[in-house]
């Protein structure tokens, strides 16, 4: 087994551990921190079921963003939808036999790579051209888009310019999952692609990609509008019940 294979195997184990442990830690932090007051942005659903529907619309259609900015919505949605399909398509490298959903998106998956890139370029364009967005952007905001464009770009280059041995790639990833390492092909675009993906996984829990768990924990979106019907009390606030007074 080559040094290269060992390096990449260790890289992906490390990245996976950081991604999972980082996200678990963050989710744990969000989950244990109480929201002491009822602060849904109203009009809000009055039932739990309504809240689930609201979150569903936010996740799937980016409902609020649609109200806020049509261009961000368009590019953002294209990028995320493309990303979703591409990710599902990638599952064929991790499942044997290939999971039927991954097989299902096999054909449109290729175009979705372009859709995703189109969305990302649109977002980058907006970020660099609109004065308000330039003002609020840190270097990391540009770099995140560049990173994703580079991942998508290197992937498409493998597909259309310099093909790699995808059977060997699949064997490598299945091997990683079974702790039975298999050799990784030493193709430049593949290695670039994989390094960038590992970088993304490592960055995930320390960056704004925390918008993914964040959305589900956002009190303005995940609370039901029922404060008159139900007394909402965080543990630290409940303690104050015993000592509260009306002043002098």
């Amino acid at each position: 087994m080559s040094v290269l294979t060992a390096i990449f195997a260790l890289l992906f184990y490390t990245a996976t551990v950081i991604l999972v442990a980082g996200l678990v830690a963050k989710i744990h932090q969000y989950a244990r921190t109480p929201a002491p007051l009822k602060i849904p942005t109203t009009p809000a659903p009055t039932t739990r079921g309504g809240v689930v529907a609201r979150l569903f619309r936010e996740v799937v259609f980016f409902e609020s963003l649609f109200k806020g900015s049509k261009w961000s919505w368009l590019f953002g949605w294209l990028f995320h939808f493309g990303l979703l399909i591409v990710l599902i398509r990638h599952l064929r490298y991790f499942t044997e036999p290939i999971w039927f959903v991954a097989a299902l998106v096999q054909d449109i998956g290729v175009y979705m790579g372009f859709v995703m890139l189109l969305g990302l370029l649109g977002l980058l364009g907006r970020r660099s051209l609109v004065d308000r967005l330039r003002y609020i952007s840190a270097p990391s905001d540009y770099l995140m888009l560049v990173l994703l464009i580079a991942i998508g770009g290197s992937g498409l280059l493998m597909k259309y310019v310099s093909r790699t041995d995808i059977v060997a790639v699949k064997a490598f990833f299945l091997g990683l999952m079974r702790f039975d390492w298999q050799p990784l092909p030493a193709d430049a675009f593949l290695l670039i692609h994989l390094v960038l993906v590992a970088a993304l996984m490592i960055i995930f829990p320390f960056s704004k990609l925390l918008h993914v768990p964040g959305l589900f924990f956002s009190p303005t979106r995940n609370q039901a509008d029922d404060p008159r019907e139900r007394r909402h009390l965080a543990p630290w606030a409940a303690k104050l019940d015993a000592t509260r007074t009306a002043g002098n």
Partner: peptide, 24 residues
């Protein structure tokens, strides 16, 4: 406060700088 109000860590972490709020 980060430990008492969930809105704070979530809001401070989650913003993607999409700019939708900038003109609101």
């Amino acid at each position: 406060m980060l430990g008492k109000y969930r809105s704070l860590p979530v809001f401070l972490d989650a913003c993607v700088k999409c700019g939708a709020c900038t003109d609101k």
